[in-house]
Design a binder for these strands. Structure first.
Lengths: 185, 185, 185, 185
DNA sequence: GATGAATGAGCCTTCATTCAT
DNA sequence: GATGAATGAAGGCTCATTCAT
């Protein structure tokens, strides 16, 4: 049964991740359970309340963040600036905005006791590592600390809806580029 | 009683403006009514549904936008760059983000029939006027069009909650400054 | 001002009579006021609560009942049976059913303190007079007393909606004829 | 828990049936739930909206109609007239009037897509079968078709409230008898 | 462990009635 | 007297969460 349970958990996180992004974190729990193909009781067994679920999703997102950072570091040798830019674009593409900021109307990613004690630290630490390289390479100003930097990424990556996507296609990449320029010394 | 009614309407808009920004546009109507010190029926008399209220608030915000643009234009003669920077900071301080973007999970500011048909146009037109000056004064790059510019401001000005405000005080002004730098040629 | 007030009262009763018949007695008071072209306060000045208004309408209906009874008695000499049948058909056409029976889910026409103390008595008395003639002429059975008779008319005259009117056109007159036959000795 | 659920559903239908008849189909959903001894959510689980509930009740009523028709046919051999009269009385006792006619202010029993697509047809078909026997036995006039006949029953069986029940006890059976007499050739 | 039925608080909205102007 | 704004108590319905099976 251990296998089934793990598979269920996985399915729930996957469903939640998609629905959080598509509909918002306020999506009815029932819909997540249905999408995951499990009963409500099963969902609540794995995640006692909504916040736990957000944490679970955030953990999954963290893994992608970690992978992006790894790729960035690998590519650093040949082309630091491109690696750095690519990392920030990937970071923005994770859309942490809607995922975590909408929760309860406040930033839970950064709130103590919020989504996984430690997730915040882990995420910021990982980001700080890459940011350090950027500092060393002279790609960002001195007043750019990890927290402010990440706040910026979170703000820039919030979805704005299909209407805006149509009116200003590619706005997000454009905005990240502006951000990158603004961060430069 | 016309006077009382007007005062009530004003109080409702004021309460809604604050609560939309602080809590989100999904804030219970009851809370808005309570904050405004009126009964629920009164609120519904003035604004038959939630969207009307959003429109009302958006109109009020537009007036402040207009005023800010006016001040900017007046100050332009003596110090264009400072005037421009001040205008963008004021724009961000209007917190259009949560106010209008959260509606229905999508950008209603830009959706036809959304918050006040015409509000979008009026707002963008007014912003475009100031942006034109900035272009002429060589303060922004050529690829900065009014829509993208405004999208950026909306993104940057989303509230993130008290937790972030404590962890990174002044993040918003910092971010606007980064934005302004990034926009420069 | 006495004239204006009387005109207002008249307009309110007229509007209520139509809306009671078209929409039901649960029609919002506001709609009645609007239809009558007066403010809510004016309506409530004339009729302190909904029931008073029902009474007012019932009074108006009574006048038509009285007129029908009068016509019946006039026509009695030449053709008693036709006069009697015509009277019952007219009675049914008054649609007392929806007008009065829907109120509060119970028969308020017949309830003490209901629509106009005395209206019930007046109505039943007037009906009894005609019924007495029918008895004397041998047109109805002995066990037909005014109350039962009137209950029957009320039941038969309830509107059933457009769907039924289309499926079984003329059902009401058909039903009244059946009733008349059933009442015969 | 399947058993509990079924019992709850049953209780809800029973409560609704009584309250629809006593108070009207506009009876607050809360009251039905309370009467059934379940929470509101349970009611809404079984019947997503008011109309579903009406359909459910109508289905239950149809079963009783079917049973009454069956009994009538069984008793026909020995005493046709008594069987026929008993059937019509039972039909009236089902109180279809308030149950189904009040819905939306119009006859939904006869409206397509109303209370159970097919309920109308099933009910009328079943009634027509018995009516056919009555025709054959010479108990009803030739112009009595199933629809008109049923319309008459619906009209006669509308509840009039306790006040009338007290003033004219037994009015309903009396009225049905009048109806039966009126239907005779 | 999994399931989904049950619960009830809470939300939006309507509307009868009151009352300040 | 007339007006219509204000009030607040329901009512329909949703949904997070619990719990019996």
């Amino acid at each position: 049964m251990r296998v089934d349970a793990a598979a269920n958990r996985e399915a729930i996180v996957e469903a939640a991740k998609n629905l959080f992004a598509d509909v918002g974190v306020d999506v009815p729990v029932r819909r997540i359970a249905a999408q995951a193909g499990v009963g409500m009781g099963t969902l609540y067994r794995h995640f006692p309340d909504r916040m736990s679920l957000v944490v679970g999703v955030a953990d999954a997102v963290y893994e992608r963040l970690d992978a992006a950072a790894g790729r960035c570091e690998q590519a650093w040798g040949s082309a630091p600036e491109a690696a750095w830019a690519g990392f920030v674009h990937e970071l923005a593409a994770l859309r942490l905005g809607r995922l975590l900021m909408q929760v309860g109307g406040s930033s839970e990613l950064f709130a103590a006791g919020g989504p996984g004690p430690g997730l915040r630290e882990r995420a910021l630490t990982r980001i700080a590592q890459v940011l350090e390289r950027a500092h060393a390479a002279g790609l960002v100003r001195q007043d750019v600390d990890p927290i402010r930097f990440q706040v910026g990424v979170v703000e820039l990556s919030r979805p704005l809806g299909a209407a805006v996507d149509e009116m200003a296609p590619g706005w997000q990449d454009w905005l990240v580029d502006v951000y990158l320029r603004g961060l430069r010394p």
